[in-house]
Simulated assay, not measured.
Amino acid sequence: MSAGGQGKRSAERMEDHLIENETSFYLKAEQYWKDIPPTVDGMLGGYGSISSIDINGSKKFLQKFLGEGKGKTRPGCALDCGAGIGRITKRLLLPLFRTVDLVDVTQEFLDKARSYLGEEGKRVENYFCCGLQDFQPQPDHYDVIWIQWVIGHLTDDHLVEFLRRCRSALHPDGLIVIKDNVAYEGVVPDEVDSSVCRDLPLLRRIVARAGLSIICEEQQQNFPEEIYQVHILALR
C-alpha cells in the first residue's frame, strides 16, 4: 500500500509521463517489495493499525453479493491478487470462501503466508509467485477475484489485459473487486515503490475497456486523513 501525499502531476494516461521504460517500472517495484519486511505493517506501508478497519469495510461490502440464488456470488473459490503475506486471505477470504488462491510477485511474502495463515491455510490451494502483468488465472475457476492495493503497479494497458483475463476466470455470477487508493485528479506517480495512483474517471475508463461494468462502488470510511481516499469497486 502506498499511502503517499497528493502530488500535482497528472495525465490522461500514466504512460505519457511516467513509464519511459516499462521493464524498469516493474523491476523497481519488485526490488522495493523485496526490501519490505513480511509483516502486516510492512504490507500496509507502516499503517498496520488500519488493518481491522480495512477488513471490516471489505467484509461488509462483499457480503452484499454472497449467497444462493439468482445473481448471487457463491462462496466457493477466491483469488487474492497482490496477496503479500495473506492478510486479506486470512481475515476476509478464508472466513467466507471454501478455498483461496494467492498470487504475489514476492516469493518471501508467499513463504511467510504459509505460516501466517495457520491451520486455516490448509484451504489455500495455490500460491502463485508472479507479477499480475504476466499472471494467467485459470478460466472459469473463481467466484471472487479480490485485487487490493496493487493496480498501481500495472500500466494502463496491462491492467486492462489483466482485468480481461480475470473476467474469463470467473464462474457465472462471479465478481471482481478492486479496492485501492484513488487520486483526486489525473495520475499521481510514486517514485518510492514505482507505482501510480489514478483518479476515478480514469479507473472507470479502464474497467470499461476491459469489458466490465461497475455494479457497486463505495468509499472506505474511517481511514486516516493523511492517506489517499480508498474506493471499493465491484465489477462484472
Rank of each mutant, 00 (worst) to 15 (best):
F128E: 12
H141K: 15
P38M: 10
Y47G: 00
F61M: 04
Q138A: 15
K59W: 00
E125R: 15
I145A: 04
T99G: 00
Q63F: 01
V103H: 08
Y47W: 12
D157L: 06
R74V: 04
L66H: 01
H153Y: 09
H158S: 11
V150P: 11
G84C: 01
T106W: 02
F109W: 00
L132T: 08
E120P: 02
T89Q: 05
G42Y: 08
D134V: 00
F65S: 04
L93K: 09
H153D: 05
V144S: 12
E120M: 12
S49T: 12
A83G: 15
I36L: 04
R98P: 01
G71M: 05
G42M: 11
T89G: 01
G76H: 03
M43K: 00
Q63A: 10
P95C: 08
S49H: 15
P37R: 07
R91Y: 15
C129I: 12
V40I: 14
V103I: 11
E120T: 12
V40T: 14
A113N: 07
V105S: 12
V124C: 15
T106N: 15
G48R: 09
T106E: 15
L62C: 01
M43G: 13
R123F: 10
D111L: 13
V144N: 07
V105E: 05
P95E: 10
F61D: 06
H158W: 03
K90N: 15
L44M: 14
Q148R: 12
S115V: 11
P137T: 07
I36P: 05
G131Y: 06
G48M: 09
S51W: 11
G118Q: 09
L163Y: 11
T106P: 00
D156K: 06
V103R: 03
K90P: 10
G67A: 05
G84A: 06
E161Q: 13
I151L: 00
A78F: 14
T99E: 14
D111E: 15
Q107V: 13
R98Q: 15
G82D: 07
C77D: 01
T89C: 13
G82L: 10
G121E: 09
D41I: 11
H141D: 02
Q148N: 13
S58D: 12
G71K: 02
E161R: 09
G67I: 02
L159H: 02
G42A: 14
P139R: 13
D80L: 00
K122Y: 03
K59A: 14
G71P: 08
C166R: 01
A83T: 00
I88S: 09
G82K: 05
D143L: 06
N56I: 09
R164P: 00
